[in-house]
Design a binder for these strands. Structure first.
Lengths: 154, 154
DNA sequence: GATGTATCGTCAGTGCACCGACGAAAGCAC
DNA sequence: GTGCTTTCGTCGGTGCACTGACGATACATC
């Protein structure tokens, strides 16, 4: 009997956490717009005119995935995509009027959902929850990108 | 400027955490067997002869997803799938010899990976990390399944 | 200005995750 | 033992996520 206890495996917990969030999002926020789509829209509200790659970087999506998400947002008319006249490789993205409207609406609902989602934790615990996850995720991402500043011995 | 700070959104953090884990798993554990596949294999090592639905329940996968994972594990010869003679609707699953061998090997590597993944946290913090995530995930899952035991006050 | 390298976006392939609908089998009526 | 309902697995559709390869554009060097 060499089976392990998955409740002490961070990867398994992360997956379950994300699934739980997915379900709650569907019921409390939107069945049309997904959480990653909202994240991209949010990035464009903060910085209109981002190119695809940078937008993906802001929310943690690789080139392929951001391309698909952008396609869907474009199909829904929430985002405009135009070639950068300065750099013919890039597409510049900005939210449409409708995109801004949807973003405002979902921002409210998302805040409500987050409250429900985190309700099992006290205020202090919620802060800890963010801090611990962020530190683990940042460190793991750092393992992949061997540092950008100084140390250009890569 | 109505953009929100995604680092205080648990769903976004959960996604980033899972992605970080995915990358680390690929480099430190296996490029062939994925984390969900290992989870299913692990469940079958613990309880050989589970049917598909129950196995999915053990690791948190719905019917459609567990079906795909089982297909892949079967294709790799890590698992046997036979009809339940007692109940013609079910398939009973058990690991093959090769499946047991792979499970043992990955168990070791997974433990190493978890250490690296959680290295940014102290021992106390790791315990907290598990506890907080588990509580949030359990509560959210509870919202979906309106309770099985008493407390039918929905 | 031609050559070589790096970057941006796309495409194909694989895998996880959900939903809704479906057929087959089982269990419960009566 | 003929129906009603439930359960198990499958199938089709959508969406996220990664990899590796590719064409087009830009940049850097000569």
């Amino acid at each position: 009997m060499a089976a392990v206890d998955l409740t002490t495996h961070p990867g398994h917990l992360a997956r379950r956490l994300q699934q739980a969030h997915y379900l709650l999002w569907n019921t409390m926020v939107s069945e049309e717009i997904t959480s990653p789509q909202f994240a991209v829209l949010n990035a464009l509200v903060a910085e209109p005119g981002l190119d695809q790659r940078t937008a993906g970087e802001r929310v943690g999506l690789d080139r392929s995935t951001i391309a698909e998400v952008v396609t869907r947002l474009g199909r829904r008319g929430l985002l405009d995509k135009v070639r950068d006249p300065q750099d013919g490789r890039r597409f510049l993205l900005r939210p449409t009027e409708e995109g801004l409207r949807v973003h405002r609406k979902l921002t409210v609902r998302t805040a409500r959902m987050n409250q429900v989602f985190l309700a099992p934790l006290s205020g202090d615990e919620q802060a800890l929850f963010f801090d611990l996850i962020r530190r683990v995720a940042d460190a793991a991402e750092g393992l992949r990108n061997p540092a950008e500043p100084a140390t250009a011995q890569g």
